[in-house]
Computed example of a mutant assay.
Amino acid sequence: MPAPEMEIVHLLRAVAVELGLHSARFASRNGMHPTDVRALITLMDARRAGEEMTAGRLGAALGLNSAGTTALVDRLERAGHVRRVRGEGDRRKVLVEVDERAVALGQAYFGPLIDRSVELLRGYDERELAAVRSFLRGVRDAAGREGE
Rank of each mutant, 00 (worst) to 15 (best):
D45I: 02
A108V: 03
A142V: 03
F135V: 01
A46T: 00
A3L: 04
G89P: 01
R13M: 13
L76Q: 06
G20S: 12
A27K: 03
D36W: 02
L129N: 06
H33S: 13
E51Q: 15
Q107F: 09
T69C: 10
G89I: 04
R38E: 09
A130W: 02
D115R: 14
P34F: 08
A67M: 03
I114T: 14
R38C: 06
G68D: 06
H22I: 00
L72T: 12
M53C: 12
L58S: 08
A102V: 00
V103C: 10
T70G: 15
E126T: 02
V15C: 10
D99S: 13
F135G: 03
D125A: 02
R83V: 01
G59Q: 10
V98W: 02
G89V: 07
R137C: 01
R57F: 01
T35C: 13
L62V: 06
R38F: 05
L120G: 11
R116M: 13
E100P: 03
E119C: 05
I8W: 08
E126G: 08
R133Y: 11
M53D: 06
A102Y: 09
G87R: 06
V98M: 14
G80L: 05
D99V: 07
R140I: 00
A142E: 06
V73A: 09
G106L: 13
R57S: 04
M32F: 02
A102C: 11
R57V: 00
A55P: 09
S66M: 09
A130C: 00
L95R: 00
E52C: 01
V9R: 14
R47H: 13
D115F: 04
E148R: 11
L64Q: 10
E5D: 12
L136Q: 05
A60H: 13
D99E: 15
D115M: 13
D141L: 00
A49R: 04
S134M: 03
V139N: 02
H22R: 15
V132T: 00
A3P: 13
T54D: 03
L19G: 08
V139F: 02
R38Y: 10
G59S: 07
A142L: 13
A143E: 12
A3D: 12
A71G: 15
E88L: 09
E148L: 05
L121V: 05
L21T: 05
S66R: 15
R145S: 08
N65P: 01
I41P: 09
M6N: 04
L72V: 02
G87C: 04
I41V: 15
A46S: 14
A143V: 08
A143L: 15
A79E: 10
R25Y: 07
L64P: 11
G106C: 05
S23V: 07
R29M: 10
G106E: 00
S23E: 12
G20M: 10
I41N: 15
D36S: 15
G50R: 07
A16Q: 07
E148G: 13
R127D: 09
G87S: 00
R145T: 04
Y109W: 12
E7N: 10
A71M: 04
D125V: 04
D125E: 11
R137M: 10
V132N: 05
G50L: 10
L21W: 05
V103K: 15
E146G: 08
R38A: 15
D74C: 01
R91N: 12
